[in-house]
Design a binder for these strands. Sequence first.
DNA 1: CATGAATGAGCCTTCATTCAT
DNA 2: TATGAATGAAGGCTCATTCAT
Lengths: 244, 244, 244, 244
Amino acid sequence: MVNESRKEREYLYREQRILDIARPVIVQEGYHALNMNRIAEQLEYSKGTVYNHFPCKEEIILALAIQTLEQRTEMFQRAARFVGRSRERMQAIGLACELFARMFPEHFVVEQLVRIPSIWDKTSATRQQQLYRGETCCLSLVSGIVHQAVGAKDISLPPGMVPEELVFGLWSMTFGAYSMLATNSNLPALGIVNGYEAVRSHLRHMLDGYGWRPLDAEHDYDEVVHQVMTQHFPTEAAQIFQNA
Amino acid sequence: MVNESRKEREYLYREQRILDIARPVIVQEGYHALNMNRIAEQLEYSKGTVYNHFPCKEEIILALAIQTLEQRTEMFQRAARFVGRSRERMQAIGLACELFARMFPEHFVVEQLVRIPSIWDKTSATRQQQLYRGETCCLSLVSGIVHQAVGAKDISLPPGMVPEELVFGLWSMTFGAYSMLATNSNLPALGIVNGYEAVRSHLRHMLDGYGWRPLDAEHDYDEVVHQVMTQHFPTEAAQIFQNA
Amino acid sequence: MVNESRKEREYLYREQRILDIARPVIVQEGYHALNMNRIAEQLEYSKGTVYNHFPCKEEIILALAIQTLEQRTEMFQRAARFVGRSRERMQAIGLACELFARMFPEHFVVEQLVRIPSIWDKTSATRQQQLYRGETCCLSLVSGIVHQAVGAKDISLPPGMVPEELVFGLWSMTFGAYSMLATNSNLPALGIVNGYEAVRSHLRHMLDGYGWRPLDAEHDYDEVVHQVMTQHFPTEAAQIFQNA
Amino acid sequence: MVNESRKEREYLYREQRILDIARPVIVQEGYHALNMNRIAEQLEYSKGTVYNHFPCKEEIILALAIQTLEQRTEMFQRAARFVGRSRERMQAIGLACELFARMFPEHFVVEQLVRIPSIWDKTSATRQQQLYRGETCCLSLVSGIVHQAVGAKDISLPPGMVPEELVFGLWSMTFGAYSMLATNSNLPALGIVNGYEAVRSHLRHMLDGYGWRPLDAEHDYDEVVHQVMTQHFPTEAAQIFQNA
DNA sequence: CATGAATGAGCCTTCATTCAT
DNA sequence: TATGAATGAAGGCTCATTCAT
């Protein structure tokens, strides 16, 4: 019995390791540099063993997407527990998002890969649904805060815009910025020296632009950051900012 | 002599066609669905002929990136010729950007591909520099408007932020949004029904958030749109909105 | 002791089931669709257990061949017990052969597989001899009836032909016909609608051609069929012709 | 132009060689001993070149089946040109069939392989139809002679039997016998020393059994054999019986 | 005995690139 | 310059067999 569970633990651990091996390859060298041989070698197991975990290469990609999405959702959930006004809770989400992007920079590449029909079509329906559920869940979490803000009259959306579309804006900004920060090594040369800080500023001003109360100037932004960091993401913050 | 130039024209035309063939494959089926055989077949020339134009597959990718970047720059230049206040000129750029994204949705995928070391390293220094120049040029064009705005006191950037970082924000938003709109077919299911309109709104509110004068409410936004569309991008607008 | 024998019974039963699982796969999907994993899964035991029964995949094939051959021999023996003239006893064998072919259509494919050197060479000498013995036994049984017929002057073989060669003729006809009936789905389209009946007719006319007394017209063929069916193969006949 | 045709000739010659390489492997070592690596090696060309001729392994099998079927049809056509009574013409077909079986012993194995769904399903519709056409053509040729015989009152088929079913009988006998003669090395040990002669005898007696005029005893069988051999199949007969 | 994870040789197939014509 | 057959490295995947538990 004990052995059973040990084996199972080892199995899950190895599954995790496969994903951890795939991750950096994808960000740094691209999808087509990822191959089963290489994974097996780095895993120090045979190819057959890798195939015992994932029936094909594409499932690894999808598993990666699901895993980071779940991680993201979990971090968003933690952030959403911040007690405060809607704008402050959204700010907490933004921080969670930045932490997430720094921890899983490959997520943005993987998210696009997974949409490619030739990849998507080879994956199992089970995992596909897991991804869809994750996406819906993550989006709902954030749009829920917008709904709350609208309900509390903290914000009034422009006519014709639904909360999901506001979330789409935040998502686009972070997706675009963090994608580029993860893959475009030319940014500093172009004058973008502090990308992450810039994103934070852009998000704040964008929400200000929408008149989301309390405006940036109306509350203690730094205090919220500090609270979220220390109370909701102590380990993550330590991990990311250890050198800063 | 006449034949010479006819041949040259044909040569350039064929080069263009190679890129036009590669384009949709990359957006719709991904990089690894793009192969020389397929290009040659669609081109109705032999593989050898394709190799006379591009020494390797990677150069095609880079050429694609350069070409769309140049197209983008050209469109931005045209937009920048809009006579008006800094905010209005920026608005013109935003419109140019949307038109560009609708015309070349693959650009955002190609931009990421080109950064992958295994691809980048196989390309020629000449073309690499062409890309860098293009990027710098395009960015300068946009940041130039921000500089103008700062000079004209239409905007005052937050302390520590350089104009390039503001541009980075606009770029991130559009890059992220248009990437997703081009590849993520699940967006409507998530409630994002009018992505392009949402992006326009987000950009306006973000600039409002930064206090860029004249604010959205202080000038006739629609009038600017109309002028830019009809005077600077008549053919593009017609092409894109023919069905709307 | 009781447990011992129960275990042994279970063991033999499982061995039987392995063969029963392999059978339809080979006829319907071919040898290379048969793999140990699949067998183990359908058996609902582990691969290791299958290997406890058969040391390699090839032995399963050989065991299948032996088993159906033994079944065939047993059915031929039963048919040979028919009391009557030599021609009638041969007719009984023919019926047994048809029943056998309908019950074990895979036999004809397996018989060919087993001859393939790369398969044959991996099997044990013990089982190889079992097959040889079975073949000899089965053939002797049939050629014995020919010998009887020759002795009783019911038939006189053409000069130079030995009884075994006459049997070879019957065997070829049935092997060829039943092989095709089992695997060639195109026969109806070619106009062969009642293959089994045709085979019966061909065999009768062939024996008539050899002048085997009593000729088809000289005895009550249908009566012999009826007797053999009801007295020697009641269960088999019921099983095969249940729907007819 | 001359070069073109030389290339083309070489190409066709190589295609032929691929089939000639595959042939003996399949009879002697079975389908699963046939692999693209091996073919390429024996061909002394690269694997890629083999794939330029056949898009997959299965197409090689089907091409083999088609080729031998066409060869068979061609030989049957030649035999059918024999001028004489229906029975004599059928006898000519029988001889053609024996010559064919001796020249292409693998045909009978390939014919069965091709029916396996996992193989059939991977082949192109074009080649599939070629096979069907070949089959129909070959069968029609033979059943045509039966029709002629019926028309000329040389034979009267048993009630309920169509000419195609009589052909099925001849086909079964030859298919079964020649399959076994090609693959079963144990036949001599079982007393079958002259298989081919036995088949000839069986066919003659079977047709006699059906009362096909002129009966075996009513005409000079050997004379017909001699004529067909020397006039219709001089090279084939020489090739096959060179050692006899 | 039963298990089933692990192995790894081996197979089919793809495709960027070369080069003789 | 255009061609496209030829190449062969590389990659995805299968599966018979082993063996520690």
